[in-house]
Simulated scan of single mutants.
Amino acid sequence: MLSNSCSDQLEELSELLIQLSPLDYYQISSVFRTSSIGQHVRHILELFECLLTQYESGKINYDTRKRDLRLEKDPVFALEKIREIQSKINLSDKDLILFQDQNRESEGIKTTYFRELLYNLEHCVHHQALIRLACIAIPEVSIPENFGVAKSTIHYTSQLSSKN
């Protein structure tokens, strides 16, 4: 089920965050030079949170998401937010309208909850790949082999290995 995949992906993120010191989490990364691991985590979580809080209205607009700086500064708060998202994510599929800017008067795009969950899952994997790069520079952090790698890539690589 898609909500389980999202929850699992967020769990992988949690397991990595537990290893980070607060400083490693919120300081600007030498790899990124303009952002921190915490900023990437905040971005991931806010998109999930936006989808969940706007689900009832049926109108989704990621551009109007709450930008909570505490999520990028406090890894414990981010872990709490992950648990909250995981507890709420298992919702029924339904039709939604997606808006792409802050003007709700603009024409929306038809979508569904499951389609937006898939978007959030892929978005999460993408940002986890970036987080992985920053964590390589932190010797104390153990990065799982497939952290930030899409499941389709893992499957494809496995197929290639079995053919050789």
Rank of each mutant, 00 (worst) to 15 (best):
F77E: 07
G108E: 05
E107L: 06
R67F: 15
S87I: 00
L45T: 02
E84I: 01
Q54M: 07
L17R: 05
R83F: 00
T53C: 02
Q39E: 11
I97W: 04
D68R: 04
L13F: 10
Y62H: 12
S36C: 08
S35P: 14
I82F: 05
L69F: 15
S35G: 13
Y26K: 08
V41L: 10
I60P: 05
V41C: 11
L45K: 02
Q100A: 09
S35M: 06
F48H: 10
L51H: 05
E105P: 00
L51F: 12
Q27Y: 10
K110W: 05
S106V: 00
F48L: 02
I60V: 12
L16V: 12
S30E: 15
F48S: 02
V31C: 05
E12W: 11
V76A: 06
Y26V: 03
Q100S: 12
T111A: 09
E46F: 15
P75M: 05
D95K: 07
E15F: 14
H43C: 10
R104L: 13
V41T: 07
E46L: 14
Q102V: 10
G108D: 03
K81P: 01
S36I: 09
L13I: 10
P22A: 04
L20E: 11
E80D: 04
L10A: 01
E15D: 13
P75E: 09
D63M: 04
S14T: 01
L91I: 03
S36Q: 12
G58K: 06
L23T: 10
E12K: 15
Y55F: 03
F32C: 11
Q9M: 13
Q100H: 15
D93V: 01
L71R: 02
D63F: 04
G108A: 06
D74P: 05
V76D: 01
E15L: 14
S106R: 08
L17P: 04
L52H: 03
R33C: 04
L23A: 14
L51K: 02
Q39S: 15
D95H: 09
D101T: 13
E107A: 10
Y62F: 12
S92F: 12
F99L: 10
E72T: 04
E15G: 14
S29V: 12
R104G: 02
S21H: 13
L79W: 04
I28P: 01
A78F: 07
E46W: 14
F77K: 11
L71D: 03
L45H: 00
L47P: 00
I18E: 07
Q19R: 08
Y55K: 05
L96K: 01
S14C: 08
N90H: 08
D93F: 00
Q27D: 07
V76E: 06
